[in-house]
Design a protein around this nucleic acid. Sequence first.
DNA 1: ACGCAACAATTCCGCAAGCAAGTATTCTCG
DNA 2: CGAGAATACTTGCTTGCGGAATTGTTGCGT
Lengths: 159, 159
Amino acid sequence: MSLTVVVEVVTQESIQEQYRLLQDIFVLLDDGDRNDLAEFGITTSQFRVLMLLNTVQGIRLATLADRLLLARSTITRIVDQLEQDRLTKRLDDPADRRAQHVVLTELGAQLRQQAQVAHLRSLERRLSTLAPGEMNTLNDLLRKLRHSLGQDLSARTGR
Amino acid sequence: MSLTVVVEVVTQESIQEQYRLLQDIFVLLDDGDRNDLAEFGITTSQFRVLMLLNTVQGIRLATLADRLLLARSTITRIVDQLEQDRLTKRLDDPADRRAQHVVLTELGAQLRQQAQVAHLRSLERRLSTLAPGEMNTLNDLLRKLRHSLGQDLSARTGR
DNA sequence: ACGCAACAATTCCGCAAGCAAGTATTCTCG
DNA sequence: CGAGAATACTTGCTTGCGGAATTGTTGCGT
């Protein structure tokens, strides 16, 4: 019986530590990202949108919202900002007059390329501690984690 | 030469995937947290502050800001809210009249306890996929990651 | 055909968080 | 000692994001 208790306590502590670790890591990641992207004049959200605009045919606003787990109104504003900076354009969907496709402009494609390279360099530097094998292990576990959390989300909202 | 190129490409992809995974996990975690904590009438930021108020002697506002990597003005407002809800009190620091210590009220301690238990239950459910061994491995790797990111932060700001 | 639910995007409102400036206090060191 | 730098907190302003309501469009059931 006492064994059970001990095991449970240990697990609870592991879970809480994991939670704190993930929190800390996110905050640190985000802080560095903001720092990196500031010199390109874009926010992390804008960057994440730009990174999804890799095709010429564009992507719908609703799809962006789903992919980034942001509210649609938020996507509207972010795309407004990008458009104001001449980085993207809205094109009407030929098949659905409700929908619009966001596409990169020439300028947007250039900036996206530069920002992506700089961001990647920064990530390589900041995550340099992990050996290749560790990185793969970590990614495997993170995938499981994401899947588990995704399951829970759809259980909460999708029913 | 081609080997070098291949290895580098693979590593870059791993890093980018890791970045996306962490992004996704954070968003999912935060979404669930907000859902859990809503029934206690507190936000995730307020919760994170409450979780640091475990001692009777309290903690300084500036320390909270440093621990949570939030601006001091943000901490001021969060503590204002908690105080308005009678969950915390500000006590003057006897040794430094500039500083104040935030302490839990009786009500705050109760709510903190309840919220913590509920949150932990939720985490156990949401992270149930990982086996104990995997969890330990993951935490080890996350610790390395946090350390590496922390190093970079102090290299950026602390000099 | 047509009415109605579902969907795409936007607008409006409110809250959360950062930055910069301001006040009060403490520290440093010449 | 005492002037200036540093520190602790607060306030005003700006921006980013979510949620509800709105407008216009599509698709489904009958």
